[in-house]
Simulated assay, not measured.
Amino acid sequence: MLRYALRRLPSALLVLLVASVLVFGVLRLAPGDPAVVLAGPDASPATVAEVRASLGLDSPLPAQYWTWLTGVLTGDLGTSFILGAPIATLIGHGLGNTLELTVAALLLAVAGGGAAGFALGTARRPAVRGLLGGAVNLALAVPPYATGVLLVLVFAVALPVLPASGHESLLADPVIGAQYLLLPAVCLALPTGAVLARFLATALRRAEQEDYVRTGHGKGLPRRHLLARHVLPGALPPVVTVLGIQTGQLLGGAIVVEAVYAWPGLGQLLLQAVLGRDYLLVQDLLLFAVAVFVVLQTLTDLVQARLDPRVRMGGAG
C-alpha cells in the first residue's frame, strides 16, 4: 500500500503545478485591475501606477508567478490587496466555517444517499423503485441556489422554525449553531446524496447479478445474508470513488450555498475576492481548493485499493 501511495505522489504534484500555472494565467486574462479598484475611480494615472508598483503588479508575469509560487511553498501567502489582512489568517477563519458546513453536508449525504441508494437498488416493487428514483432525480436536477431559496421560503418564512441566514459556531452554542447549520447543510447535501444514491443503486444491481451471488441464491441462502455479506461489499469500491469526487465538489457547491445563507466561509471569501479583483487572494483560494481535491482523490484511491486489491495490482504494472 505504501508503494502504491508513493507512485501516486508525482502525478499529484504535477497536477498542483499545472493548476498553479492555469490559475495564475487565467486570472490575468480576466477584465479589471486591482490597482484601479484600490486607487479609486477618480485616481490619476500616476496614482494608479504607484499603487500597481506597490502591489508588485508592474513586474513581468513570470516574475510575479515565481514570487507567488515561492511564497506558497514557504508558507507566506501574502496579504490581501482589498481586505488588508494576512491571507493565511483569512483562509484559516473561513476554513473552519466551511469545514463545519461541508462535514455536516457530507454526513447527511452519506446517510441519506446511502439509505436511498440501498433501498433503490434492492427494492423489488416497481412502484417503490419509481418513487425513489423520481425523488433522487429531483434532488439531482434542482440546482442548489433554487433548493436554498425554497428551503428558506418553507422553513424560515412559511414555517418559521429555522433561521434564514447567519452563523453560530457549534462549539460556542451547539443548539443555536445546529439551527443555523441545518438548512445550508441540507441544501449542500441533496445533490451529493442523490449522486451517491444513483451510483450505489446501480452498483448493487450489478453486484447482485454476479455468479457467486446467483450461486448463493441457488443454495437457498437468505437474500438479506447475501446482500450484507456479498452484494454490498462488492458494490462499495466504485461508490467510494464517487464519494471522493463528490466530497471535493462540495467545496464548489459551498460557494453558492454560502452566498444564499450568508455563511462566512471560504465561498464567501472567494466571492468577495473575485468582486474586488484581489488576484493574490483568489489565487491562494483556488490553489488551496485544487490541493484539497487532489488530496481527497488520492485518499479515495488508497481506500479503493484497500477494498479492491485489483487496483493495486493494476497500478503495479
Rank of each mutant, 00 (worst) to 15 (best):
R3S: 07
R7G: 06
R7A: 14
L14K: 00
V18Q: 00
V21S: 03
L27D: 10
L29T: 11
P31T: 06
D33N: 15
T47W: 12
T47D: 13
V48A: 10
A49W: 03
A53T: 10
L55Q: 01
L57S: 05
S59T: 06
Q64A: 08
Q64T: 01
T70D: 01
T74D: 02
G75Q: 07
G75R: 06
G78H: 03
I82F: 12
I82S: 13
I87S: 02
H93I: 08
L95A: 15
T98G: 13
R124N: 02
R124Q: 13
G130I: 05
G133T: 04
A135E: 01
P143T: 06
L150Y: 00
L153R: 01
A158M: 14
A158S: 12
H167F: 15
C187V: 11
C187P: 10
F199E: 10
A201K: 04
L204R: 09
V213P: 00
K219E: 06
R223K: 04
L227E: 13
G234V: 02
G234W: 01
P238I: 11
V240M: 08
T241F: 15
V242F: 12
G248V: 14
Q249Y: 15
L251F: 15
L251T: 06
G252S: 11
G253C: 07
G253M: 09
G253L: 14
A254C: 14
I255S: 00
I255C: 01
E258W: 13
V260K: 03
V260A: 02
A262I: 11
L266W: 12
L269W: 12
L270E: 05
L271D: 06
G276C: 12
R277N: 12
L280F: 01
Q283F: 10
A291Y: 03
F293K: 07
D301M: 01
R306V: 15
V311C: 09
G315V: 02
